[in-house]
């Protein structure tokens, strides 16, 4: 119909081909680079035939349970032998949560979503409200029994955070609970970190060294220290992650 229209019509098709190449080429190049780097790194490991260092592994396998008192060796390592690394991990999480809250606050809060009827159903309210406490209990179990069964502070903390998010989702219909208020969550996280720092310093004063077990000289099983650290880390991680999620749900200003 319009001559101008017909003359411009083939143009997008012509542009399409170089555009696709310009998109595909970097992807292929980066894939080749990544594969090359992987081969370059892994090939010497496979080909050289150097013996793997086994001294530490054997020591942990034979003596770890005795020395730490924790049946779950993963817990024994990350709270007993390598507790200093765990402190670093919690600081990383603290920085991540602070950064997220700072970004949300800097952007002027979360944009208020319109309350469309389709998204909020009775089903979600009832199911999340009833499921929340059960998930909380399970999270506490994973947290407190991390020295015996799979789990621990970080895993239990994340499960606790899911439970708090469930409660926050379920209680939006009207009922409120104090555990989903951002102020309380921030307080729990700060207290958890304070207790963690105190627990790390106590060993210095009793002669066990930084992050040393202060109970070792009193004749109490060292597993008590691991349980306490698990509980503190679990509370801190759970409060931090749920604070992030509750702030994103748009409840921060209330």
């Amino acid at each position: 119909m319009n001559p101008l229209r017909t003359s411009t019509q083939p143009r997008p098709a012509k542009q399409l081909v170089p555009q696709r190449i310009s998109v595909v080429l970097p992807a292929v190049l980066s894939a080749v680079v990544v594969l090359g780097a992987a081969v370059f790194t892994l090939l010497p490991l496979v080909r050289l035939g150097t013996a793997w260092p086994v001294a530490l592994r054997d020591h942990l396998e034979q003596r770890g349970v005795q020395e730490s008192g924790a049946c779950n060796l993963v817990s024994a390592i990350y709270l007993g032998y390598r507790a200093f690394d765990t402190l670093g991990e919690t600081i990383v999480l603290l920085v991540a949560v602070s950064g997220t809250i700072g970004m949300i606050a800097g952007a002027g809060g979360v944009p208020r979503l319109e309350r469309s009827k389709g998204h909020r159903t009775e089903l979600i309210d009832v199911v999340t409200g009833k499921l929340g406490p059960v998930v909380l209990i399970f999270g506490l179990y994973v947290m407190m029994f991390g020295h015996m069964s799979p789990g621990g502070g970080f895993q239990g903390g994340v499960v606790v955070a899911s439970g708090i998010v469930f409660l926050a989702l379920g209680s939006r219909a009207g009922g409120r609970s104090r555990i989903t208020e951002p102020g309380n969550l921030a307080r729990i996280e700060a207290l958890g970190f304070l207790f963690l720092v105190i627990a790390s310093l106590v060993g210095s004063f009793t002669g066990a060294g930084y992050f040393g077990n202060p109970l070792a000289r009193a004749g109490i099983s060292p597993v008590v220290y691991i349980i306490a650290l698990n509980a503190v880390i679990g509370l801190k991680v759970g409060a931090g992650i749920s604070l992030m999620c509750v702030a994103m749900l748009g409840e921060a200003e209330s």
Binding site: V74, P150, G151, G152, F154, V159, A161, S162, V165
Partner: peptide, 17 residues
Amino acid sequence: DVAITEAAVGAGVSTVI
């Protein structure tokens, strides 16, 4: 241990976010 973390973080919290 890693399986619990993966299920809770990957399937739970990150999906919500």
